[in-house]
């Protein structure tokens, strides 16, 4: 069963040259994109900067509206984890308030919120004394754990992970990826995993979709796409990856 199905999504942004003038042209951020993600699975969405992958994520989350096309969701319990943990946590809020925000918006009672927050911190392996501190008092990896805890607390069924490890050091990347996998298994969540890094996507996703210039150029099971890429762009992308094992 599909958790998400996107059908022929289009989104064009007007390019303006100067004040009060009309659009000089359109940036085709998404030019007819269709994807589906099976329940409980991870779809890796790879592409280079400006290919439209983040826009697609935001459309699925409902933050921006597509110009045309449909998003069919099996759930309304959505969550998001962003790339830059400096930017995704409100610097003026304590961790306690950051974590309880979603639950307050869901109108949960105070007692239950307290308990759930404690459990969530354990889940992402942060100490309980983190609650009284502010985001800037944590390292990048720890901040990403806070963002994950915030996402998990509202018990989402679909999580859009937008470059969740791109700004982290490699050893931390691995820890966060394992944590994400672990949580996915435990709560049987579905992930849309957006990344420019093919190594990270291969680690996470069963299926993969490759985007270029607002279009999906290739999609299929990760193993197959990596071993027998069919589209020339996928081939270039794969040959550009610099591993250390030859």
């Amino acid at each position: 069963m599909n958790m998400v199905k996107c059908i022929d999504i289009k989104k064009h942004f007007p390019i303006r040259r100067g004040y009060l003038k009309g659009a000089a042209g359109f940036l085709k951020a998404l030019d007819g994109v269709s994807i589906e993600i099976e329940k409980g699975k991870t779809l890796g969405l790879v592409g280079e900067s400006g290919c439209g992958k983040t826009t697609l994520g935001k459309i699925i989350l409902g933050i921006i509206k597509p110009d045309s096309g449909r998003v069919e969701l099996e759930t309304n319990k959505l969550q998001v984890i962003f790339q830059d943990p400096h930017n995704s946590l409100d610097p003026k809020m304590r961790v306690k308030d950051i974590l309880s925000e979603g639950l307050i918006l869901n109108k949960e009672s105070k007692e239950r919120i307290g308990g759930k927050i404690k459990d969530a911190l354990d889940l992402v392996r942060l100490p309980q004394n983190a609650l009284a501190r502010y985001p800037h008092q944590f390292s990048g990896g720890e901040r990403q754990r806070i963002a994950i805890a915030r996402a998990v607390l509202t018990e989402p069924e679909l999580v859009v992970c937008d470059e969740p490890v791109s700004s982290l050091d490699i050893t931390i990347q691995l820890q966060i990826l394992e944590l994400l996998k672990d949580i996915q298994k435990r709560f049987s969540m579905t992930y849309l995993f957006i990344s420019h890094d093919l190594r990270v996507v291969r680690h996470m996703a069963e299926d993969i979709a490759v985007m270029q210039h607002g279009r999906i150029v290739e999609k299929g099971p990760t193993r197959k796409v990596y071993s027998e890429p069919s589209h020339p762009y996928t081939k270039i992308l794969l040959s550009s990856v610099l591993g250390i094992i030859k």
Binding site: I170, T171, Q173, L174, R199, V200, H203, G243, I244, I245
Partner: peptide
């Protein structure tokens, strides 16, 4: 260094890199 790192830090770093390769 990549094939046979000696120090503990290098070993863990290389392992992470390999896990993601």
């Amino acid at each position: 260094i990549i094939d046979s790192p000696k120090e503990a830090y290098t070993i863990s770093l290389i392992e992470s890199v390999k896990a993601l390769s």
